[in-house]
Nucleic acid binder design. Structure first.
Lengths: 188, 188
DNA sequence: GCGGGCACTTGATATGGATCAAGAAGCGAT
DNA sequence: ATCGCTTCTTGATCCATATCAAGTGCCCGC
């Protein structure tokens, strides 16, 4: 659970007693490649931190899948939207590789929020950071052409190309696999 | 400042003493129609709750404006992205009508967070709610055609058509004013 | 109350990226 | 190793929406 401790202590300080209480709430879960971490229509009972593996988050609509993002390397995973509101999820989260996630139950997290004020602050700061990432992505989708979005990804996250299939990246960049393939051939 | 009190007490309870401290941090600001609440490139020192008026938030890129949303009636206003990170803003926020906003300074808010634990919780809950709205919008932009986005707006927020120009709504719905105009003629 | 400039409409044309199609290459399961 | 899937590529064609263009009306400032 060292990962969880690091993630929390980046933002707030906990006493050892508090930390023990927090640690007791987290559990390790494994998801084989291809399995669903979160399923549309189901209320997500947990939120996760990625210990190992890669997952993708996407929406299904008319038989098409639209990829919203990927989770890996200490980032958050799971359908946070469903988790927060405790209502049936609209997203799916799928393990792209065998994955090990550290998860906490919604009820347990609420209890921690109630018992340890610093956890509220942690939650706030995490969300502030997430919001900033969203803003950046929103701006890019809004203002950039397909080719510019591809170039931007190449520059900012070239490692993604190693982790995920091109079709998923294409979807994440809001284009078809064909367009993505042509860009790869054409750009650089 | 009743608006502020309501907004906070929807989420957490404060003692009268705490409330007095919070209230002292908020100030009323007026923005004449057309003026900028937040300006790209500037660090936003305040965040606002709308007491009166309508504002639009948008990005400029290559001389084009892309509208991300509107603020009115007790909702949040100002460049929250710049405010949170205290870095130069990428958005602009403009008063569409004469506006009265209740604002709090970044330093003051941090002080409240430090002195009143309930405020951290309030911040967290606010952000959780904002995130859910964003998720909904993201899904709609992802999965719906221009016509479907228009129909969805008609159903969910018909009042917007009274508050804002068609060209801003068109931009918000990710289409040109021409496309929007044609949809209006064609749909229903 | 006049004039200039937006906002909106409507039509013609252009285009970025999607869709359809077919083949090649990689890979997991048996 | 072989079969069957899925991914990736490449080409041809299509289409939703943008762009360009011109005209109308109306609102706001002087």
């Amino acid at each position: 659970m060292q990962l969880v401790r690091d993630s929390i202590e980046r933002y707030v300080k906990l006493t050892d007693v508090e930390w023990a209480e927090v640690a007791a709430c987290w559990q390790r879960h494994t998801f084989p490649k291809g399995s669903l971490v979160s399923e549309a229509g189901r209320v997500e009972s947990r939120t996760y931190i990625v210990e190992e593996g890669v997952q993708r988050i996407y929406v299904e609509h008319d038989g098409n899948e639209h990829c919203l993002g990927f989770a890996y390397g200490n980032s958050w995973s799971g359908d946070y939207d469903s988790f927060i509101g405790q209502r049936p999820g609209r997203f799916q989260v799928q393990a792209i590789t065998d994955s090990v996630l550290l998860g906490i139950d919604h009820a347990d997290l609420q209890r921690l929020y109630d018992r340890i004020p610093a956890m509220d602050r942690w939650g706030r700061l995490i969300l502030e950071e997430v919001m900033q990432g969203r803003a950046t992505r929103e701006i890019e989708l809004l203002t950039l052409s397909a080719e510019e979005r591809y170039r931007r990804l190449l520059k900012r996250s070239p490692h993604l190309l190693q982790l995920v299939s091109q079709k998923d990246i294409a979807s994440y960049l809001r284009m078809t696999p064909e367009t993505f393939s042509r860009l790869r051939a054409r750009v650089r």
